[in-house]
Amino acid sequence: MKYSQASIGRVFILRLEQGDRLPDTIEEFAFQHKIQSATVFFLGGAEKDSKVVVGPKEGEEEKIVPTVTNLSGISESVGVGTLFINEEKLPKLHLHAAFGRGSDTITGCTREGVQIWHIGEVIILELINHIAERKVDPQTGFELLEV
C-alpha cells in the first residue's frame, strides 16, 4: 500500500440535468473550476442505453478488454468515485455506480458514458495538499492512481 495525506478544499454541489453525461460533465466542471483531485458522490436517474463497464472479458490474458453493457431501461443510480489529474494535467473521473430497475441491478464503471435521466445530484469534495495523480500503467493501459 502507498498513500498520500490530503486536506479538504472547496465543496461543490451540482445538479445535473437531462442529457448531461458522466463522466464528461464532471470532468469538464473540474477543468473549468481548476479541481485537480476530489471525492465524488452521485445520486440520480440514468437514461436507457447508458453504457456501463461491468468487468473485463473472460480469458483475456494479454490485453484487458472491458465488457460493456447498456442499461435496458431508465434506472435509479447511486455512485462514488475519485477524480485526479492525469499526466496531461486533465481531471479524470473514476466513478463506479449501481443502477437499479425493478428487481435488477447492474454495478459498474461509468467511463463509457451514462446519460442523466431528468436529474443527477453530485457532491464534489475537493482534495488539496497532496501528491496523488493518475499515470498510465504500461502493463494494463489504465490511468492508475500514483501516490
Rank of each mutant, 00 (worst) to 15 (best):
D104I: 03
A46N: 07
E87Q: 15
L83T: 09
Q115Y: 14
D20P: 06
N70E: 10
G59V: 00
F42P: 05
A46G: 08
A132F: 09
N70S: 08
K51P: 00
F41K: 07
V65E: 07
L93D: 11
R15W: 00
P56N: 06
I116E: 01
K34H: 14
P138E: 14
N70I: 00
D104W: 04
I106N: 04
W117F: 15
K2Q: 12
S77A: 14
G9Y: 09
C109Y: 10
L14D: 01
I128R: 15
I85C: 15
E76A: 12
R15L: 01
L71E: 01
K92Q: 11
F31G: 05
L71Y: 03
S7Q: 15
F31H: 13
E60A: 06
R15N: 01
F42H: 04
G59E: 01
V52W: 11
F31M: 12
L144R: 13
D104F: 09
I13K: 02
E126Q: 15
S37G: 12
T39V: 10
L144Y: 02
G79Y: 02
L83I: 11
E76M: 06
F29V: 07
E146K: 09
G55V: 04
I64G: 00
G113I: 06
L16E: 07
L145F: 03
A98E: 07
D137G: 11
L95M: 10
A132K: 08
L95W: 09
L125D: 11
I128E: 12
Y3I: 01
P23E: 11
N129M: 10
F42Y: 14
Q139W: 03
G19E: 06
L90D: 14
A6I: 01
T110H: 02
S7T: 14
E17C: 07
E146N: 09
L93Q: 09
E47C: 03
Q32S: 14
T140S: 15
E76D: 08
I26G: 03
F142T: 02
T69L: 05
I124V: 15
I131F: 14
K92T: 13
